[in-house]
């Protein structure tokens, strides 16, 4: 404590120019190792851990030596660590709260009981084969016939959704959010060049919705089945607006 009280503002860190240049070189080498690691094809877990360690080492070197906290008054270190630890805790807390935002939430977590029942009925209909889905069974069959799983068996523009041509279904149900020309409004644009994910992703999005967005589950709200979703995906990915 005595040392702190008498710390002089003009005390200089003992580092020489040579040492500063050496530190710069070490930081460069550490960055190159990180870069090499990111291309090394390590499994994700160890790769992320290794990158975080290297990044933390670089961070510590710059703060301790370039910002010379190591040689400076302890008060600065405490002040900075306070902000850093608080920020780190905030990051962990936010990730803990929201990291399950990806795909683990189900329709049941959001929808009303009635919608859930409809969703389950639709899922059941899908499980027992097309034609058992009640009111929309005829459409389901038609769509199933028009679009095959492979996607190259039928004309994507000629698909049917619940007995309605796919383009008409889009205008009646999807265009309000995604735009009449699929240019995007509330929802994202849905043009072939924008839809770069695999078919299954959009298939799942249409049937189950996207938690945390305005995209509803169309299985729950309209009773779409697998074949309907398939027809829509083929249409969106292969037919220009």
């Amino acid at each position: 404590m005595e040392h702190e009280a008498t710390a002089h503002a003009n005390e200089h860190p003992p580092t020489t120019i040579r040492q500063y240049v050496l530190i710069g070189a070490i930081l460069t080498v550490l960055t190159l190792i990180e870069l090499w690691l990111s291309y090394s094809g390590l499994p994700h877990g160890p790769l992320i851990a290794a990158l975080l360690v290297f990044s933390a080492i670089k961070f510590a070197i710059v703060v301790a030596l370039f910002m010379h906290l190591r040689f400076d008054n302890r008060l600065f270190t405490r002040m900075f660590l306070f902000g850093l630890v608080l920020a780190g805790s905030l990051l962990l807390a936010l990730l803990g709260l929201f990291s399950d935002n990806h795909d683990s939430r189900t329709v049941e977590a959001y929808a009303t009981p009635g919608a859930v029942a409809a969703h389950e009925a639709a899922a059941e209909a899908g499980g027992h084969g097309e034609g058992e889905g009640g009111g929309q069974s005829g459409g389901g069959e038609a769509a199933g016939g028009a679009t095959t799983e492979g996607g190259d068996g039928g004309d994507p523009a000629a698909g049917m959704v619940q007995g309605i041509p796919v383009a008409e279904f889009f205008q009646a149900n999807c265009a309000v959010c995604h735009g009449q020309n699929r240019e995007g409004l509330v929802g994202p644009a849905l043009t072939p060049e924008r839809l770069t994910q695999p078919d299954e992703f959009y298939h799942d999005t249409i049937l189950n919705g996207r938690p945390g967005t305005a995209m509803p589950s169309w299985a729950a709200t309209k009773g779409l089945n697998d074949a309907d979703a398939n027809a829509l995906v083929q249409f969106l990915k292969h037919v220009e607006p």
Binding site: A87, L91, S99, L190, R194, Q197
Partner: peptide, 25 residues
């Protein structure tokens, strides 16, 4: 600078939470 840690901490958190959630390219 301590307060800036919090500023960038929230932005980095947001990036990580949104990661993998994009619907379109």
């Amino acid at each position: 600078l301590a307060s800036e840690c919090l500023f960038f901490g929230t932005l980095i958190s947001t990036y990580l939470i949104f990661k993998g959630n994009s619907l379109v390219g």
